[in-house]
Design a protein around this nucleic acid. Sequence first.
DNA 1: CCTATCTCCTGTAGGC
DNA 2: TGCCTACAGGAGATAG
Length: 273
Amino acid sequence: MPELPEVETIRRYLAPRLAGAIVRDVVVHDGRLRRPVPRGVRSDLPGQRIERVDRRGKYLLLSSAAGTAIVHLGMSGSLRLTEAGAPPATHDRIELLFAAGQSLRFNDPRRFGSWQWARRDPLDHPALRCLGPEPLDRGFDGRGLRRALRRRSSAVKLALLDQSLVAGVGNIYASEALFAAGVRPTARASSLSPARCDRLAVAIKQVLAAAIACGGTTLDDEGYASADGTPGRFQVELMVYGRAGEPCRRCGRAIRALRQGQRTTYFCPRCQR
DNA sequence: CCTATCTCCTGTAGGC
DNA sequence: TGCCTACAGGAGATAG
C-alpha cells in the first residue's frame, strides 16, 4: 500500500529517467479505475515532453506543457518502467509509450488507483487542493500539527490518516510514528499537549525519512516495488505494524492490535501512553 | 465545519 | 478439493 515513502521512492527513480522524455502514445488498456480515466490523459499527453516528476502527498505528478497527470496508486497500484514491446500483463491498466522506446506501465489489480488530469496548476485540482502540509517540509512542525489536531475530537491515529491535516501518512506510518512518539493511538487528537505534538511531528518526519532511505515498505501480501521492480527494505525496521502478539522491540511487551475506523492499528501498551 | 459509516475492487487466507 | 466469508485499505460520498 503505497504511502508517501513508497511514492517518493518511485518518484526518485522515475524523475531522472523521464524528465525530457517525449510521450509517443498513451494506451488505456482498461480505464475503469477508482474514477474513469479522463479524456485529457489520452488526448493531451501524446506528443508532450515530460518536464518534471513531482510528488504531493501520495500523488505522483507527471507534468508536461499541456497538463499534468495526477497518479494515485491506491493500495495495489504499481508503476514499472521497461523497454516497450512486452504484451500487457494481467491488471495493466495504462501504458505510456515514450519516443525513446521505454514503456511506463500502471498495473492495479484492485482498481483503487486513479489517473486524473489537470490542464493548469495541478495544485488547484480537487484531488490536491485540500491536502495538508508535506510532513517532510521545513514548515511542518509541532505547532502546526497541534493547530490541526486541537479541534479534532477523534483519536489521534484517525486524525493522522486525514490527508487534509498531513499529506502522505497512511496506515503503516501512522502506527509507526505514534510508536516513535510514545503516543497512544486512541488518545483524543485534541488532548495532545504542545510537547507531545512536537514529538509526534519529529517522529513523523523521522519515520518517513527512514522509510524513504530504505526504499519503502514491501509487505508479503502487497508486494510494493519501485518502478524497476526493486522491493523496499523498511519492513524489517517496523516496530509495531503487523506485529500483533510479537514482543515490542523496545520493551518486550506484546504488541497489540485494535480496530479504528475499519482499519487495524498496532501499538505497544507500555511504550505508548 | 466535523464525525461516523459505507462503498468501490480483487486476491488471498482461513474455516469447514 | 472447493465453497464461503473475512480481510486488506485510500479516499470519496453520504448522512447526521
